[in-house]
Design a protein around this nucleic acid. Sequence first.
DNA 1: GTCTATACAGGGATAGAC
DNA 2: GTCTATCCCTGTATAGAC
Lengths: 215, 215
Amino acid sequence: MEISSERLGDHSPATGPGSRGRYPKGVRRRQEIIDRSIEVFADVGFEGASLRALGEAIGVSHAALRRYFETREELFLEVLREKDRRTIFETPDGIYGALRLAEGLVEYATQVPGLMALRHSMVARALESGNEHSKRFFVDRYAAVREELAHHLSAARDEGIVRSDIPLDAMTALVVGALDGLSTQWLLDPSVDIYRGIDLLEGLLRPAVTHPLVS
Amino acid sequence: MEISSERLGDHSPATGPGSRGRYPKGVRRRQEIIDRSIEVFADVGFEGASLRALGEAIGVSHAALRRYFETREELFLEVLREKDRRTIFETPDGIYGALRLAEGLVEYATQVPGLMALRHSMVARALESGNEHSKRFFVDRYAAVREELAHHLSAARDEGIVRSDIPLDAMTALVVGALDGLSTQWLLDPSVDIYRGIDLLEGLLRPAVTHPLVS
DNA sequence: GTCTATACAGGGATAGAC
DNA sequence: GTCTATCCCTGTATAGAC
């Protein structure tokens, strides 16, 4: 989807000589930092992922990282952006299931454990006044996720899988929120069956065949 | 409710002379620290609430705080515990509405802004391996919240406000998760109407008679 | 352009004096 | 029970090598 790639697309290098665009090597290095960072998060969690630890894993000093990211916060946001790009926004449109995206969102949680902790931590920052970059990131991110989901739900409505008498925007916010909240509970305590919760929500959103709500 | 007060009840002082129980003055001081901390969070947010800042607000050095809390993490968990005690678990049983508790949970979010950021941050810690105190806190906390909500939903079922053909545990996990997730989206972007989402969920859980789900 | 070396302010944790 | 002094680590910032 265009909106997704636009909202969550690549950014130019943080600092550049002059201001004339992108620099292949710098961009590549920047991407390498992001990729390696994800691995480090998987290894030691985000709390152990100090700039010095990150630099050591990559083979550079911590100061070098700041050539590509103005601040630690910026680097972490790019890590989350990359993670979103890989999981949520690469899902093909309109697979059979409506809440197919749900599995993507859940998968998001399970794949690299440290990234969920990182996400919560960065949301925490975004909720505090003064961290405008984080705030903007998540405001846009959730808007993009909702829009992506709206696309899927709309298709699901055409297939008769999802009720048509519910406003899309309210539905998307609810579904995204439910998936987020269920994921958190499940990550904390695996005995909370997240899939039962998702199935329940999916059932609630399905057109009630036993009642004459929809013809 | 007994379970709540048991699970979220007071703890003994972290350190005590000998090991013979509670010490009024120590307990009082400890409570004062928690109360003042909440005020500091409201003022400067949790990021600015360093142990030194907290100590200064109370009038002691940062080292003194460790007489009452073994670690910063422990202090913050107690702040959250106190906040839960004040909002969620003081709601009287079985007011008319089923999702009456929902408003309490939402209110939780809005009252002291810094506390939601703190909660997210501590959940982040809980999701990382190695922070067993935080993890246990939130595992128990969410279990208690679900149980509290189950109590309300059960009463609501008797009143015919909530469908009786849905397992309580799946329903509670879904509702708690939805409220959490919606709150997050709303705190980030007030244009996301959290009450429409709650109303939608409430409508979905209502025994299907004829109600259209528009707002 | 890219990176190292280094300095700095602030954080939590801790030991020992009173 | 509270303090001061200290330790090590953090993110940030700057200077200068090549």
